[in-house]
Design a binder for these strands. Structure first.
Lengths: 252, 252
DNA sequence: ACCTGAACACCGTTCAAGT
DNA sequence: ACCTGAACACCGTTCAAGT
């Protein structure tokens, strides 16, 4: 099957042959599982699964060696393909990193949803605190993934509907909890948007101070970091409350 | 004058000729001033001033094109020297960027000192607020310089006594103001260290949200950013106070 | 269709050779 | 002393050629 296509004004030949059957046989590849992949590894000129493997390897390489260590060539090497192969699936490095960021963001969002599920209390302040804590925990455990989706260098955030939607979903959750808290008369200030931005800036700043290695110069050791971040969040939340605040709103 | 030196166990020849007179003639170079530099620009094999020029050009290139656009080769190009020349003055790129960071940090600190000088009030809360505001203003006006000294990628923070000292000086200023506020009975919580870290995390988070381009996805336009950051700071400060806080502690 | 492999213009870094 | 210029191993990206 031969197809003629017009693309950017120039005619190109495209072969409509179906490689997907062959690809399915090789879907697992010889990656980390190593579960009997020896049979399929021979003579697979077409990878079949490359797009996903590139994203997975990008994520893994970032986690292992840091954001600046992620290169298309190294990702291609780990996927077992030539340096030019990734460009068949992503127009440039930014596009690959954006796809990596989308996967990281999906995991981040799932973690927040899970944390909210664990916080069975109906108290909006406790639920807000659970989101903040989940944010901090995830950043601490996945520093480079956090950096990819938050620093936004190396990705095209605005160009990704997926990233925008995930971000908006997390925000909406928080706004609704803040409005609930306001209606219950819990808040000292009636400005949910400002509170939201301030809270976000606080947890973002804490996470970045950790990741950027600033805590040592503030007298906080690695062991203390988790505790300090948590108490910092509580200090802020207590300051929002109308009633003479208890020292630890998370344990009331 | 020929000198033998032992360095790392191997003998090396050093020429003790004096190039500094020649260098002094060329000290201004044909940089931004352009004040009658035409006469000195011919046949200056030895730059004479290169170390400082490299730092200045690094700072300027960072401000113009962003941190990732700073390359040793481009800095060398702007300084009018060959790609290898910078390595005579800095062992590697990290060392050059650390020197750039030291200059950026010195300017940052000067701005904070100036802001405190302008805040003539003796009220520790107002002085704390002035520091926070100066932090935010400087970050907004010098985004890349801010990123260099705060993200700390590309530099060796721990290896620079100058950076550590500047940082410690800024912290000490803040701690003493917080202790003063505590002694005046102004604070709801008696934990200056935790308050300091929380406040720093807040302004750092705000500055980074701005620089990382996150405000648009939080419904804040570029025009509104300065105002939002200021109100956010006030929201936090009000939450620290023991007395039923006024809405705007900066205008009391 | 999807991938290879050579090529190009970059970059950090080194090192002999120049002045 | 300090700088040049060629070299090396990287990188992102392109493009003909392979299957």
């Amino acid at each position: 099957m031969i197809v003629m296509t017009m693309f950017g004004g120039s005619a190109r030949l495209q072969w409509g042959g179906n490689w997907s059957r062959l690809a399915a046989m090789n879907a697992t590849k010889a990656s980390r599982t190593g579960s009997g992949a020896s049979a399929a590894s021979a003579s697979t000129y077409h990878h079949g699964n490359l797009r996903e493997v590139l994203i997975t390897e990008g994520l893994a390489l970032a986690a292992e060696a840091g954001l600046d260590a992620v290169s298309i060539r190294e990702v291609a090497r780990r996927a077992g393909v030539s340096p030019g192969a990734p460009f068949r699936h992503f127009p440039d490095k930014v596009a690959l990193m954006t796809a990596v960021a989308e996967e990281a963001m999906a995991r981040f969002r799932a973690e927040i949803v899970a944390a909210l599920g664990r916080e069975t209390s109906g108290d909006p302040i406790r639920r807000i605190r659970a989101i903040g804590k989940a944010f901090l925990d995830w950043a601490r455990r996945n520093p480079t993934h956090f950096e990819i989706i938050s620093s936004r260098r190396a990705i095209d955030f605005a160009g990704s509907a997926s990233l925008g939607a995930s971000n908006a979903a997390i925000q909406a959750q928080m706004v609704s909890l803040l409005e609930e808290a306001a209606q219950c008369g819990l808040l000292r200030v009636n400005d949910p948007h400002l509170i939201q931005i301030t809270g976000r800036a606080l947890v973002y700043g804490l996470a970045r101070m950790l990741i950027d290695g600033q805590f040592p110069s503030w007298g906080v050791t690695e062991d203390e970091a988790e505790d300090v971040m948590e108490r910092s969040l509580d200090l802020f939340l207590a300051g929002l409350l109308k009633a003479p605040a208890s020292a630890d709103p998370g344990r009331s």
